[in-house]
Design a binder for these strands. Structure first.
Lengths: 348, 348
DNA sequence: TCATAAATGAGGAACGTACCTCAAGCAATA
DNA sequence: TATTGCTTGAGGTACGTTCCTCATTTATGA
């Protein structure tokens, strides 16, 4: 073979296929101007030799630089903060080799602001974009425009199913809601009512979680009655008051399901009411407040997704999309994690 | 900078530190024969420039080949089969770049056979080894000998805490047992008995899972009585008969906990008894039988670990150990997964 | 049959690092 | 001062792939 490792190289392919190195290169990199017959010759030589491209050498020679943009909701939010933090971590590691990241924040509540911000981006320098924004007609237009410009577009954490996005990296919210429903049904054995709270049902996630939650409870746990969703609309104090009021006024409550952000005021209300022990409490997203809640037995289970995995997955998918490579789906499927006190991952 | 990407290279370091390329190389690769003063100069240039080694180029130039050996229990076993399969998958992907894998099977029940097989290995060609074997005095000796030969040694899935292994990749079995206990306590609301089964309590995993399970049930769920562990000693028929007998003879049973391999005969016994609906059933390891059991509502929850993650983690750790690089612990911590019907990962 | 296009070959430079050799500079010690 | 050992410099080759140019051969259609 000539080389030290014994692994076949492009030279070996050329020799076996009886073509020149240039032709091997043309076939390997899917360049035009090669007859099908020659392509086949080269490919069978590749198979025969068991050739695998040396990615190190390829990366080095290619000098490929990926420019990816992440569009995240602005303002505080522990889930988004976790994404930011994991993006930084990935950036430092080898997973983000040869990529430059551009993280921008948008006021997702205002579709026009989102459009304005996204329209001002320089598309020439951009290879791919990950969007964590609610799906609106304007967003669909933007996605179409990005695709037109040849940019890889993925939806992050929250899908944009009616747009032309290339891929969705995240969990199925309906399934997450169904998982919560199943847990709630098994935890809350006695007849009673379930309180459901979220920040806003205008968010697709909350809608879908609620949908899944109801599906399972109706189908399998008829002894439980699910109350209408309480919404806080970004007002923590309002959330705390609403939840506290319900806890006081509803003696038949046996469960509490917090579907979105704003777990902290819910927990505060729960503490004030001193009813945590008699309720089955399920929340979404593993953050400092929910960790504490699990450890203090105020929360029975947290439904979470591994944000590190989410981010690394997004980067891998963006890279594969911009290279025109296929996506290894099983690896990019984010799991719906059930976290309880005893399987809580340690910090650091 | 001279290069396209704008990233600083070794040449930039040499220029800024006012030393030659050779000296930069000596410092970067910790070669001897450089004054401390010079080392400092180079290092501050590195910091100043924000230099990061181009791993692609380094790998290419180094032509480093890792030779890793995985020692797995022989014979059938769905967990071990899954490991094999994930090893093959990893081997095909970029995670196992530049590594040659050597997978050997040993009859773990016979310590002498294990010793014989491991003693016959060629240590010269070996950079690292991953062991999935029970801890015996003989194994401890072998580990010591491997370390002496400068080989990286990790325990896979099952720890060897009293040996000189460099690292353990796997989950804390006590915590896994505690998780099962917590779930069982919450699922089985009414007073009654819990049946616990495993292949053999001589396995450390089973012992520890049982320990954790009992801890939680005793501390938090006194209404449940845990029966002595039923062991099958590698005999599926015996297992099915034993479990079926218990299901018939014990009307007060409210839960069933299967701690190890041999879930299939347990499920068969459960089916024959037609008592699945009234019992809370928790099993370990996500395999075909347990998947089916979850979907048919015979199993309430499966405690699992992500075997793909386990294997990729092992490879990363072995590589870092043989390079003398630090290990990024959070990434290598395997999670204790709770899998139920609604968050069952799809197959491919 | 000739003009034209398509396909292929030959060769080389570049990517950034690792690793080697040989020579030269420097310092401390006898 | 001479000798020795330590430190540094200069320059090169190699890794396997990508990508480029230019020349040459082969196939295609008028």
């Amino acid at each position: 073979m000539g080389n030290v490792t014994g692994k076949p190289t492009v030279h070996d392919i050329a020799r076996v296929a009886q073509v020149s190195l240039a032709t091997v290169d043309r076939v390997l990199n899917a360049r035009s101007g090669v007859r099908q017959k020659t392509i086949d010759k080269v490919n069978s030589a590749i198979r025969e030799l068991g050739y695998v491209r040396d990615t190190s050498a390829a990366n080095l020679a290619r000098q490929r630089q990926y420019s990816f943009t992440f569009v995240l909701p602005e303002g505080p939010g522990q889930f988004v903060d976790a994404i930011r933090s994991e993006l930084r971590a990935a950036y430092a590691s080898q997973i983000a080799d040869r990529v430059t990241l551009n993280i921008i924040s948008v006021a997702t509540a205002d579709p026009h602001a989102v459009v304005r911000k996204l329209s001002s981006l320089d598309l020439d320098q951009m290879d791919g974009i990950a969007l964590l924004v609610p799906e609106t007609p304007q967003i669909r237009d933007i996605v179409a425009r990005l695709k037109q410009a040849g940019i890889a577009v993925i939806a992050l954490a929250s899908d944009l199913p009616n747009s032309e996005r290339d891929f969705f990296v995240g969990v199925d919210s309906v399934a997450a809601g169904r998982t919560s429903g199943l847990l709630m049904g098994k935890f809350a054995a006695t007849e009673g009512e379930i309180m459901v709270v979220t920040n806003s049902m205008r968010a697709r996630d909350s809608l879908e979680r609620r949908l899944g939650f109801d599906q399972v409870l109706q189908a399998s746990f008829p002894h439980l009655t699910v109350l209408p969703t309480i919404e806080s609309f970004d007002d923590p104090d309002r959330m705390e008051d609403l939840v506290f009021g319900m806890l006081i006024r509803k003696p038949r409550l046996v469960g509490l399901y917090s579907m979105g952000s704003g777990n902290l005021p819910v927990l505060r209300a729960l503490r004030r009411s001193a009813r945590a022990a008699e309720l089955s409490v399920i929340m979404h997203e593993l953050t400092q407040p929910t960790r504490t809640g699990l450890l203090s037995n105020e929360i029975d289970a947290v439904i979470a997704q591994n944000v590190g995995h989410l981010v690394r997955s997004a980067l891998r998918v963006l890279r594969n999309l911009s290279d025109g490579h296929p996506i290894f789906e099983p690896q990019e499927r984010i799991r719906i994690e059930i976290v309880m006190r005893e399987n809580l991952p340690h910090l650091t």
